[in-house]
Amino acid sequence: MNSILQVNDATKKFSGLMANEGITFHVDRGEIVGVVGPNGAGKTTLFNSLSGVHQLTRGSIIFDGTDITKLNSHKICKLGIGRTFQIPQAIVTLTVEENVLIGALCHTNNMKEARQHADETIEVCGLAALAKKPASILNVAQKKRLEIARAYATDPKLLLLDETMAGLTATERVESVKLIEKINAKGVSILMIEHNMDVVMRVSNRVIVLDAGKVLAIGTPEEVTSNEAVINAYLGGGKKDA
């Protein structure tokens, strides 16, 4: 019962394509777990299964002692999994503030309470200056931040972050790391997909390496970086690119 998330044999098939196959791992309470892997490895697909966007073909997902394998998005959110999207899904008809308010309304009907919670979240996420602006005018970095803010406002026990740093400048990345560590310090467990190796290796307690839909390695950053299969399949290629 110590782990907040337990995934067993997660398998997702898209008409012939095995996007995820036999993925088994867990996230401990308070842990930050990184997910890495080349494009098309099945990382986002895994997040979509965890957050109920679609259902697994095979396997099971236990979150905080509850079997959530077959639940819908909104139910999973209510139970305590917040998520961001790789392609930011800002609610463009609303302001920044209202976007976060939508998250904050997850556990209350009281508008005053929700507004207060939203304001706090906006402050923590460094969006206060943009609060009254329509979400449609934000740039990519701001939209990614808004994704985090809206998800965090739902008071998650586990936060799934899908490439929240892709497309960010070095300074913006530093800010983003700080934010993630701040959220984690409040007791929120984090599972994060990230391409930037420096970031992943620095903030993660453990790292899961996916390749072609399967788990290639799981372990501490040190264990993973010294894993031969990983070096051959992914890190080697990544370093050559850089």
């Binding site: 909104h74 209510k78 800002a90 609303l94 308010l101 939508i102």
Partner: peptide, 17 residues
Amino acid sequence: YYLRAINGNETAAESAG
């Protein structure tokens, strides 16, 4: 507010509970 959110982005709305 929920209706406006659904109108603006249903995926985001669902993910926010």
